[in-house]
Design a binder for these strands. Structure first.
Lengths: 330, 330
DNA sequence: CTGAAAGCGCTTACAG
DNA sequence: CTGAAAGCGCTTACAG
């Protein structure tokens, strides 16, 4: 089933079929109809591989994620897949494993597979490397703000999100609010720390370094953080975890010490993972619109590909109140 | 950077470089060295797209999953990615959305992208459709047992897993064990129901239809199931949920009614999702080796591609005891 | 508007 | 063992 067979069936040349397929040139109506009919009858589907080799467009978009099984980015991948699909593009997912060298290898690989563009979900690549890459191929990157030719970035307001979360706690009367941080290498982690401090300040509360305990964005680190906090004997009535996974770990550590959420300690997370609404108790958290992030990133890519200038903005952070916080007694 | 430049640099013909790259023919040692050196110096990477067009092998494997963001299949996708990678193959993930027609479209698309084989994670495709597909391309399918040319299947013993889970409860002295089922269209759901009944029988317990409440494999359905169970006033001291997601929903419903796990009711899940060890309390469940499933499926594919007959078996089900069950009092 | 032809980067018979 | 050549299924200047 090739373009040649369609051409023969429609009584036109191979080039004409190609042009109709690509909308590359005006074609006489009669021929267009004949070709459309032949395509329909034969059930012809153009071969993206050959297209990629010949024309440069492979109709596929490389997507560099950190881990294909991330509970956090899953929704973004789905958003990308669902908006690319109607446009005829397929995503090619690869995992960077939070490693700049691996991400660089992914890019080489995606190049060799002739992707038409690359979407980078966060990642460790330097801004420079990203900008260089964008010189060859359109790229959309999330988790940073950068302006460079061929590059479009989409960033979430982590500062504001963290400020909102902390403010919720100060509004409830909490004065000793612990913060489980993320690693410093993550720009969003440092932004969230900034937001925490800003909210404290707004509430007229002093920043207490002993109340910030280091975490690493996964459950076990949240557990450990709470255990450390507890054994430090530093008093606290609420915890803001820099992401939901750590909040889940924190809840477990609290539970093991027979401390109840929210009666004994209030807990707020960040991300609003799919599972957080089913936590015990359902977790109050900052909603991060990952599904939309994926959709928007894909839309921006489609616009870049069409030669347009994307004008896409991320939605503002939003606090989702569930059952893990309580007004400070007394 | 093409094969031609390598050939020139090494002073051999283009065909020779290709042969060395593919191990297609014996080559004089001196030439091989020259070529290897040229490849290393130029940093040449063969273009899989061109390879796919010319030779038929695109070095990519289509993977049909149900949802790219499934918390359950994520580990399998990672297993596939990690075992395909060292062999030089890339996975091409597509989502079937539990719909046979969509899966069929995925297969057409994967064909047009010239994948070298297809891995189908469960899915709704008929056995016949799968067998037909395998006539053209090697296919590995999970979640069913089928023997057909070019097809290799990998199935998990859902019956035995469910039997183990239920037996754990009967061993603890529970006599009224509720079962939250999955939908009948899932063969594994019906197998799990069979396992539940078998364990009951072994323990000399009568099967009580009112104790089996329908679910749909997601959290909300688990919640609803428990609410229905509670309002039916049918007494029970333990629940076996046919998957972890429903167990999580069940735990939440119990919590809302101020029923404690495991003090008031014991709870067992099925799957051992990554998050289940962090449930409150950590969930006792049947471990389903998804990461290994992915690895094994990819290995089987690699063997099929090499013309070998895979002899791969799935690990046996295993109960993971955590803190959600307690001996029946009295 | 439309064809014939070259070419994308490889592989693989076909001849030595 | 190794080259020259055809071909994979398309796109895109190049000429009408």
């Amino acid at each position: 089933m090739t373009i040649e067979m369609v051409a023969k069936a429609a009584g036109v040349s191979l080039s004409t079929v190609s042009r109709i397929l690509n909308g590359t040139a005006g074609v006489r109506e009669a021929k267009r109809e004949a070709v459309d009919k032949a395509i329909a009858e034969l059930g012809f589907v153009p071969n993206p591989i050959a297209r990629g080799l010949a024309g440069g467009r492979s109709m596929s978009i490389g997507v560099i994620t950190q881990a294909i099984d991330s509970p956090f980015y899953g929704a973004a991948l789905r958003g990308i897949e669902e908006t690319l699909d109607p446009a005829g593009f397929s995503p090619l997912f690869v995992s960077g494993h939070w490693n700049a060298a691996t991400e660089a290898r992914c890019i080489t690989m995606l190049h060799s597979r002739r992707v038409d563009g690359i979407i980078v979900l966060t990642g460790r690549l330097s801004d420079q490397a990203l900008a260089d890459c964008a010189l060859q191929l359109p790229v959309v990157a999330t988790g940073r703000t950068l302006s460079s030719p061929g590059l479009y970035t989409l960033n979430f307001d982590n500062f504001e999100g963290a400020r909102l979360a902390t403010q919720h706690l100060t509004d409830l009367g909490h004065k000793q609010i612990a913060f489980i941080s993320g690693e410093d290498e993550h720009p969003d982690a440092t932004e969230r720390l900034r937001g925490y401090r800003a909210a404290l300040e707004e509430a007229g509360l002093a920043f207490e370094p002993k109340l910030v305990v280091p975490g690493a964005y996964h459950e076990v680190s949240g557990m450990l953080a709470v255990e450390n906090l507890l054994s430090s004997r530093q008093p606290f009535s609420a915890i803001f975890a820099a992401n939901d996974q750590m909040a889940v770990g924190a809840a477990l550590a609290l539970h093991k010490r027979s401390l109840r959420v929210p009666d004994d300690v209030s807990l707020v997370g960040f991300d609003d993972m799919a599972s957080s609404q089913f936590s015990l108790p359902p977790l109050t958290t900052v909603h991060q619109p990952n599904y939309e992030l994926g959709q928007l990133a894909a839309q921006a890519m489609l616009q870049l590909l069409a030669g347009e200038e994307p004008q896409i903005e991320m939605p503002a952070p939003r606090l989702v109140r569930r059952d893990s916080c309580k007004r400070m007694r007394g």
